[in-house]
Design a protein around this nucleic acid. Structure first.
Length: 300
DNA sequence: GCAATTTGACCTCG
DNA sequence: CGAGGTCAAATTGC
């Protein structure tokens, strides 16, 4: 964070310099100064994103946290409140094009076991909602526990890879979203059926920043299982399974804990290169799998 | 053969 | 009625 602040300081200094010599500057040098300022703040912004991901993860663990609460954030507010305000508005407040979600929100609501009901082809062809059978239940917005985080995409390699969070997910849908350049992908826990795990997530790139994913988590994992030795089949772009930690968490704090910890353990510092965020050095068998006793050996 | 992904159709909600 | 969310058959890859 200190690094980010020094960058911001540097940017502010450049702004001051520009301000003081605004009259005497030629258009060329004005353009150069603006470029430099833009670059500086862009750099700070990128680094801040990483910090935010960590903060959001911590927020999730603590459940409740003021938007601006840490010491360094408060310092930053004093330094450049407008900048922080703008930043939080953009990346911490209404981040979606629809402006409906905050970066971190926790809504504790009843999470029913299985949100939907599977219909056979014949049942489906029988007509929607008609017949005596119970209509298919569908979860809508604001139902269940919901958390949204922004996660930087890989800057090198396959940037299409969705952010990893140490859980295994199965993609079950993808949709073009209105006013969004990028489709939204829908994932549910691989163990949804096996363990009746209601966890789901939606992954979408930000319109104005293709290198950032907005990941919306719904429901919490009841499976208490991490990756189940995914093999090559899981190496498809949308299902890459990686993990960065071999530490066991007897209590499932959710994906954010793992992600935050992964970042902290893996980074050794915040850098512009985001490759460190989701390194995949551990073979799948390093994933810590533990099961509920009643599950037996049902998983593969 | 199995599991994961793709994708068009279907369903629900606002 | 349109947008978003989900289902499940078809497809793909190991």
């Amino acid at each position: 964070m200190e690094e980010v602040m020094s960058i911001i300081f540097h940017g502010l200094k450049l702004v001051d310099e520009l301000k003081s010599s605004l009259q005497e500057k030629s258009p060329e040098s004005l353009s150069t100064s603006l470029d430099e300022i833009t670059k500086t703040f862009d750099d700070a912004k990128e680094r801040l994103k990483i910090v935010l991901v960590i903060r959001n993860s911590e927020t999730t663990m603590n459940q409740v946290k003021p938007v601006i609460s840490s010491c360094s954030d408060r310092m930053l507010m004093q330094i450049e409140p407008d900048l922080m305000h703008e930043y939080w508005l953009r990346y911490g407040g209404s981040t979606s094009s629809h402006g409906t979600e905050a970066v971190t929100q926790r809504q504790l609501m009843a999470v029913d076991g299985d949100g939907g009901r599977n219909l056979t082809a014949t049942e489906r062809s029988g007509g929607s909602g008609s017949g005596s059978s119970t209509p298919r239940q569908r979860r809508r917005k604001n139902e269940g526990e919901e958390q949204t985080v922004l996660v930087p995409a890989l800057r090198s390699g396959n940037t299409d890879l969705p952010p990893d969070d140490s859980h295994t997910w199965r993609k079950y849908g993808q949709k073009e979203i209105l006013h969004s350049k990028f489709p939204r992908a829908y994932y549910r826990c691989t163990h949804q059926k096996l363990y009746n795990c209601p966890a789901k997530k939606q992954v979408q790139r930000l319109n104005d920043d293709p290198f950032t994913f907005r990941v919306n988590y719904r429901g919490s994992h009841t499976c208490h299982i991490y990756s189940t030795a995914p093999t090559a089949s899981a190496a498809a772009p949308t299902a890459l399974i990686t993990t960065t930690t071999t530490t066991s968490h007897p209590v499932d704090y959710g994906p954010f804990f793992d992600m935050a910890e992964a970042m902290m353990l893996g980074s050794g510092g915040i850098g512009a290169n985001m490759d460190f965020i989701f390194p995949c050095n551990d073979p799948p068998h390093h994933h810590h799998c533990y099961r509920r006793s009643e599950d037996g050996d049902g998983d593969k």
